[in-house]
Computed example of a mutant assay.
Amino acid sequence: MISPAMSSALGDWLDHKRALNGAASNTITAYQTDLLGFLNFMTSYYSGAQGLGPISRITVSDMRAWMASERSRGVAARSLARSLSAVKSFYRWLADREGFEPTAVLSTRSPKFQKKLPRPLAVDAARAMIDTVQLQAGEPWIAARDMAVVTLLYGCGLRISEALGLIPADVPLPATLRIIGKGGKERLVPVIPAARTAVNAYLEACPHPMDADQPIFRGSRGGPLYPRAIQIVMANARMQLGLPATATPHAMRHSFATHLLNAGGDLRSIQELLGHASLSTTQAYTAVDTARLMKVYDAAHPRAHPRAARQSPTIPDLP
């Protein structure tokens, strides 16, 4: 149990993240879960409700005890690193507001973990996946639905949440689709004819009415379609095709980026299509080599232009 004052502070911080940082609802929920878990541990650890006073006096040893407890519960290093990041963010905000020293929390080292590199499918495997997902359904309209969703992931590079968030106002799909992605960031995505055809085929087959405030992709009973359903369909399809476990809905987005790059697409343009804030994230998606990344960086950076170089002669050129 945490004190009313701490509960109020946590609520204010979540509102702050939601309003100023544009955090998505799923991200806010994750922040809340991480912070409540941490605060509840400290309550148990000290055998008393944690208010603003006790929380401001947390030591390095306390932080180590929490992290050890999380690992003993089987929490993976990646998940613990995410929780620690949320705790640090909250403490940085709370320390500014309440005027205490947060060094003990902010200096806590994040656990090391191996970053999972995305594994795009080969071109023929991506096409086979689109053809095979429709074979998993017992009803024609569900087959058309699954094919339409996976085609959007691969053909337009959408996140699964973005594809499943399309509403009747978005169809028929235009030549360029306006997508609101993570953090409320807006981007324009070209729609290939195959994606438009697949979505139209689904809409014609779907037996459920298209209410204006409901997403177009529906579950078998007419409710919103959830990502888990597509994950299961793709899992069945990849087993049928003999593809690895990495052939997930998100891998179709990776495949979109990699295949577009291999076909001559510009890395910076692909970054914009995917909605990435950092070019290095796009690099990871496409497994592009560092030399190619630096070529794009040099071309885009102000220091690469002669005029900028003359204005800043003391700054060395990039390698």
Rank of each mutant, 00 (worst) to 15 (best):
G37R: 05
Y91P: 02
V171H: 07
M67Q: 09
R97K: 14
I232R: 02
D211A: 11
S107W: 13
R109D: 00
V191R: 13
M1K: 10
I270E: 03
G183D: 15
D317V: 00
I315H: 03
D131E: 15
R97A: 00
M147D: 03
D170W: 12
S107V: 14
V191W: 11
A9R: 15
N262Q: 14
G138I: 12
S7D: 15
Q50D: 02
P244W: 01
A309T: 03
L273Q: 13
V199I: 08
R228I: 13
K116Q: 15
P168L: 11
L261P: 10
R78V: 15
G181P: 09
L273G: 09
R307S: 00
V133C: 09
P111G: 00
Q134P: 04
R57G: 01
H259N: 03
P54L: 11
G223S: 12
W66A: 00
E204Q: 14
F38D: 01
Y154T: 06
T282Q: 03
H305W: 02
A287N: 15
G74N: 07
T286S: 05
T29A: 12
S312A: 14
G181A: 11
P227A: 03
D298H: 05
K17E: 00
H250E: 07
M239R: 14
V199R: 07
L318M: 11
V75W: 06
G138F: 12
P174F: 14
A251N: 04
R145H: 05
P207N: 10
G181N: 08
G48E: 12
A24L: 06
L273P: 10
F38V: 04
V75I: 13
L279S: 11
Q214Y: 06
T282E: 01
S83A: 14
T59Q: 07
V149L: 02
K116C: 02
A229K: 05
D62V: 09
E98M: 06
T43V: 05
R82S: 00
H250Q: 12
D146P: 10
P207E: 03
R228M: 06
I142E: 00
G242H: 08
R303C: 04
T103D: 15
R97D: 02
E70S: 07
P224T: 05
Y297H: 11
Q136S: 11
L261N: 06
K112Q: 14
A309G: 02
T176D: 02
A49Y: 09
V60Q: 04
L166A: 08
Y91A: 05
M1P: 09
W93R: 13
M129D: 04
Y297S: 07
R73M: 11
R109A: 03
T43I: 02
S312C: 10
M67S: 00
I216Y: 09
P244F: 02
L318T: 08
R159I: 06
P316E: 11
D266S: 12
P190C: 04
R268D: 14
F90H: 06
D213N: 12
Y31H: 12
Y31F: 06
T197V: 12
I2T: 04
P209I: 06
C156M: 15
T33K: 08
